[in-house]
Amino acid sequence: MTTETKSGAKRSRALNREQYRKQHQIKPLSVGIASVFLAAACSDNRQEAMVFTSLNDCQYQLPDYAEQCQMAYEKALAEAAETAPKYGSQADCEHEFGSDQCVVYRNESGNSWFMPLMAGYIIRDLLEPRRYSQPLFTSYSRYSPYRYRWIGAGGYDYGDFRKRELKVSKSYTKPPAVNRTINRGGFGSSVRAKSSWGKSSSRSGWGG
């Protein structure tokens, strides 16, 4: 049953440690959310998406769709502010992305961070109201593995930054976009009941 694994190492080959590092993140979720998704190596399940380096680039290429370009650009820009890696100092940010590649980001509570400029954006289903639009970043720093690569907000490496067409997965079934939440908080009561027992201020998990 285990003969296949019996030759060679019994442990994971190489872990991408950087992907699991948390120190530079302003919130624990920023690596995970809104990253561009790709299908797991199923070529039949991918389709082309276009890359533009600026709003002008999109409108020049697709003059009939200037308005859609604008909306996709704004969506990507908003996404970039939310999901780009954030650094405490300009030097740290420039070390990763190159000089003059970083801008100040201020969150609602007034804290300042440095994040890379959006270097491009990727669009699919441009004509659909729920078009797919995501920011791309690149690095000019010789210290960075991202140098001259298209990098998604989730850290995914799309390859050489001269590419203008990228393969992304076809849309998986999306649940309905319009949901009216009629009730909230209907899970978790067992925990509240059981928490009254035992440790005072805090507790460990409900896993086992």
Binding site: P28, T181, G185
Partner: peptide, 16 residues
């Protein structure tokens, strides 16, 4: 490369 989001169990809502 899987899109993912977090929420607490207590915050889960139920839609129409």
């Amino acid at each position: 490369n899987i899109n993912n989001r977090f929420l607490f169990i207590e915050d889960i809502g139920l839609a129409d």
